[in-house]
Design a protein around this nucleic acid. Structure first.
Lengths: 152, 152
DNA sequence: GCCCCAACTGCGAGTGATTCGCAAGTACAC
DNA sequence: GTGTACTTGCGAATCACTCGCAGTTGGGGC
């Protein structure tokens, strides 16, 4: 800790640092445990989404005895706090990342390549879905399949 | 069989009837087995997508001893032939339906309601994805999450 | 500082969906 | 009819999680 004042009246804000998230965890009645801290450090360091397997490997590199079920439980807690999200990039296990970095994906069903899709690309669909179906879309959760340029 | 001539030179066409699909199966070196026939009848009768569990129940109502793994294997074969597709409507098991009936879905992440989305709604996204990323999208496979009008 | 207890953890077993290996069964080309 | 390659039933295996439980520990309260 350092850049965050010793609490007093912090309000679920400053989720931009590991320490900030741990303050939020405590504010919600949780505990700032080593496994949670290291998991957060890994997530903050990650450049893209990670599978639970990859997360576990990274966490266990620093704390060897952290059990997979603990990773799952911590991920679930952090999701409930809204700090992270998971998404499904095709079949296979889910991937996790910081909520602030969430984005949509196109996955090539031939070569498996994942392409990140800018949110702006979904503006039209979001508008139509809202207007015609009353539906507010969140395009981040499930990837959209298709074929990349090389495989068309 | 009846409306399809006894083969001779049929060309993977007429996939609009059970008999037509079974001809295609044979043409590709497969066998027209009872379990495959009944599975197809169930799929042709179905109005919407069915889970493997529902399919198995319907098939077993007519042929009690069909094993789940047989259902899975037949579904896989029919997918390879392009006759059916499966899609994921949120977490939970996949659902299957005739390829000709495939469409996209919006799923409410609060109440779970599934809304069918007309393909036209994706025309803009398809165009932009193609133009900007070279990506040809197939929006049918994974549902898009969000909130329905009632839950917003 | 110390205490206490709810939150957390490791561990192993359980679950749900799907896949696999194998030996017995059967569709269908010849 | 016959042979054989495709199918099937069955049970075990796998994969991604989830759960129950008993022991551990963070951190608010004194």
């Amino acid at each position: 800790m350092g850049q965050v004042p010793p609490s007093a009246h912090l309000e679920a804000s400053d989720v931009a640092t590991v320490a900030g998230v741990l303050d939020l965890v405590r504010a919600q009645g949780g505990r700032a445990t080593p496994s949670k801290r290291v998991l957060l450090e890994v997530l903050f360091d990650a450049e893209d989404h990670l599978s639970v397997e990859a997360l576990a490997e990274a966490v266990q590199a620093r704390i060897p005895d952290v059990h997979l079920s603990t990773i799952y439980r911590n991920l679930e807690d952090l999701q409930e706090l809204g700090v992270i999200v998971h998404s499904h990039l095709g079949h296979g296990p889910a991937t996790y990342q910081l909520a602030t970095l969430a984005h949509a994906h196109f996955i090539c069903e031939v070569c498996g390549k994942a392409v990140e899709a800018p949110d702006a690309m979904f503006a039209g669909l979001a508008k139509t879905a809202k207007a015609e179906l009353g539906f507010t879309i969140d395009p981040h959760h499930f990837a959209i399949l298709g074929r990349c340029g090389d495989c068309s």
